[in-house]
């Protein structure tokens, strides 16, 4: 067990290191850097002026020096300076994290609250009209682009309330923030709930075929007891793993939804930074996303082991 954990942690570190190299190199493949954009937007064509910008931003240094500069800074908690705002990248990124985190958490809650019960109903009523209906709903959840769903929600709110819920910089209270985030979270969460619902359904169906379910039925347990005490508790195991995939799903959903609803979160900031070629912001946010994804997968594997005593990771 100890050896397994050590290997897992080392692999995680290796993955993150590889990601840091990958993102760093890929960003520098981009045709045109921030200096070009700044020069273009200011309308300056002075080569000396441009060279000065390049020097100030450290873009003239060899690429490996730039990389080590970034990584050693990262180790000290210094993320460098944002090109656009010229403020420390940490100060730019950190305040946006709670916004995205709250949105993601809310979306996750929605997706579980909607997905698990509907998945159970769909499985228990397999091949009925209700099951077909729910399956079509869940598949459509996977088929609607979340930004379109978000736009439709905006349209509906304009139609009915004559206004659009715009995220304010400083929500007055937690309740206020909850209200503002609940609609965008629904746009993200609906898609994820579809994934959870499908998995819960197929996992339930799998479990319902097991012998111990037949045993439970034959000893006279009620249908409710069989469905919930015997089947659901075992069927939920694979659903836990999906949270790993879910994390990836949610982040993708956040990117477009934050853009549509103008929510000042990390995900929208990433898109803006990419458009601006703001390397320090892009590479740090990408590393943050990679770190979260890798960590979530690790935690899910560990949770799986705790929940299912049959699973033991060999040393």
């Amino acid at each position: 067990m100890g050896a397994y954990l050590t290997r897992r942690v080392l692999l995680m570190a290796l993955t993150l290191f590889g990601m840091s190299v990958l993102i760093f190199v890929m960003l520098r493949l981009v045709p045109g850097d921030i200096a070009d954009i700044l020069v273009d937007s200011a309308g300056i064509v002075d080569a000396a002026e441009k060279a000065k910008i390049v020097r100030e931003l450290g873009l003239d240094k060899p690429i490996h020096e730039q990389y080590f500069g970034w990584i050693s800074g990262l180790a000290r908690g210094d993320l460098g300076f944002a090109y656009v705002s010229e403020r420390p990248a940490l100060e730019e990124i950190a305040p946006r994290i709670p916004v995205s985190a709250n949105l993601a958490l809310l979306a996750l809650i929605y997706s579980v609250v909607l997905g698990v019960p509907l998945g159970v109903i769909s499985a228990v009523r397999q091949n009925t009209a209700l099951d077909y209906g729910l399956r079509v709903v869940s598949l459509s959840g996977l088929s609607l682009p979340s930004f379109w769903l978000a736009l439709l929600i905006l349209m509906a709110s304009v139609q009915w309330f004559g206004t659009i819920p715009i995220y304010k910089v400083e929500p007055r209270s937690i309740w206020d923030e909850f209200l503002l985030l609940s609609v965008p979270a629904l746009a993200v969460g609906f898609r994820s709930s579809a994934l959870i619902m499908r998995l819960t359904r197929s996992s339930m169906l799998e479990v319902m075929r097991q012998d111990y379910i037949r045993t439970a039925r034959s000893k006279g347990a009620t249908a409710t007891s069989v469905n919930y005490n015997h089947a659901l508790r075992n069927a939920l195991l694979p659903v836990v793993t999906i949270i790993g995939i879910e994390a990836a799903f949610l982040i993708g959903g956040l990117i477009v939804t934050e853009t549509v609803f103008n929510i000042p979160g990390v995900a929208r900031f990433l898109v803006e930074a990419i458009l601006w070629r703001d390397y320090p912001i892009v590479q740090n946010i990408v590393m943050l996303i990679a770190f979260i994804t890798v960590l979530v997968n690790f935690v899910v594997d560990m949770a799986y082991m705790v929940l299912d005593p049959r699973i033991k990771y060999a040393d």
């Binding site: 993955t15 990601m19 990958l22 960003l27 045709p31 982040i251 990419i274």
Partner: peptide, 24 residues
């Protein structure tokens, strides 16, 4: 396998976003 690990550390959309940005 390790390279695949690295590529899977980013969600599909983020990976495509970064790739699209670096390719133009």
């Amino acid at each position: 396998q390790r390279v695949m690990d690295i590529m899977q550390a980013l969600p599909l959309l983020v990976m495509a976003l970064v790739m699209a940005a670096s390719l133009g």
